[in-house]
Nucleic acid binder design. Structure first.
Lengths: 179, 179
DNA sequence: GCTTTCTTACTCGGATACCTACTGTCCGAGTGGAATAGG
DNA sequence: CCTATTCCACTCGGACAGTAGGTATCCGAGTAAGAAAGC
């Protein structure tokens, strides 16, 4: 039982995307370099988020990802289920009907195995807790509890990689200087 | 993210062991044949349960497993953690310190990443729910909601495989008759 | 008939293969900006 | 100088390997029951 690290990446990415201007977007490779994770693999998770409708992708040279709706309307559960899938963690194999009780008719068993029921309740509690907090809550927590230097770092990085609103000739020069 | 089937097996085994007389025990192979699961693999999980102190193992020809304490004092969480391990499902990789914020001192970050904190809360809710219900609750649910035929099947099977309290010469004959 | 010894069958326990699913990487289709050629 | 065209760099998207952890199996050490032998 283990949560894949894609969930952590996805949540961090959503948090960063919150800091974008409404018309801005960030590419998978930019998000990957900001977080220091492999870009091709992060792209896979971002695809899953896009398919689930959590983020929106725009193609082309200036394309990238942005949040599909306000951060206050994206729960952590949305992100988790988009990346890990919404299947239940516990899958009842109905072993109560195998072995010794094999020959008994299906009608002799209650519709739900008690063990499966107990596990489902726990999982529901887990999901409920995740659905309570939104990406906005995460960002708010970040803005309040984090050192100004870290906040400035994030802000400056976004400003640096965001394409300027009005294209100018100096754009290319700047790019080449970076190398 | 997925709960291994060993958890389901372990819970069913604990439930069956509840029906034993105080001096009785059941071997791994008997429990496996009752549930229709591979015996060698079930043995592995029973070992884990024994090491965690949930069940007790007795060696030798008449050995086997029995509950280490009353079923009312064994929570579902005890069984789950014995088999799956007690490590947290979400492991924060601290990617907030990688990438762009790499050069900032460790002191600039709050002690706990907000994302990790949110995930931990959800996991705590999951564990809390599992720790509320005990093996006894499962058995009670089984005794109440299950068809008499199923209950009789379980009872008879236990009576059949349990060694008689007072050893007699007929013991061997009985065994051979079963084959 | 009783006690002691021995055999034997059964138990648990850990070490060893296999297989699914997560992790990681690659290349192709598509798009929008920028340079360029023409008017 | 302005406009239409072409080109190209950059984007996403899905298809393709590598690896860790769960699944399944085996064999060895140990024990207690029961048979057998001796008294």
């Amino acid at each position: 039982m283990r949560v894949g690290e894609g969930v952590e990446w996805g949540l961090h990415c959503c948090a960063i995307l919150t800091g974008l201007p409404s018309d801005g977007s960030l590419s998978a490779s930019r998000l990957a370099e900001y977080h220091g994770v492999p870009g091709a693999y992060l792209a896979k998770h971002l695809q899953a988020l896009a398919q689930a409708g959590v983020i929106q992708s725009s193609p082309g040279r200036t394309g990238g990802y942005r949040l599909a709706r306000p951060a206050s309307e994206i729960s952590i559960l949305d992100v988790v289920e988009a990346i890990e899938g919404a299947e239940p963690h516990f899958r009842c194999a109905e072993i109560r009907r195998r072995g010794a009780a094999r020959h008994l008719p299906a009608a002799a068993f209650p519709s739900r195995c008690g063990i499966a029921h107990a596990m489902e309740r726990a999982e529901a509690a887990w999901r409920r807790e995740l659905s309570r907090q939104t990406i906005q809550d995460l960002v708010r927590h970040f803005l309040r509890g984090t050192d100004p230097r870290v906040r400035a770092c994030a802000r400056d990085w976004i400003a640096g990689v965001l394409r300027p609103g009005t294209p100018r000739k100096t754009t290319i020069t700047r790019r080449q200087e970076q190398r």
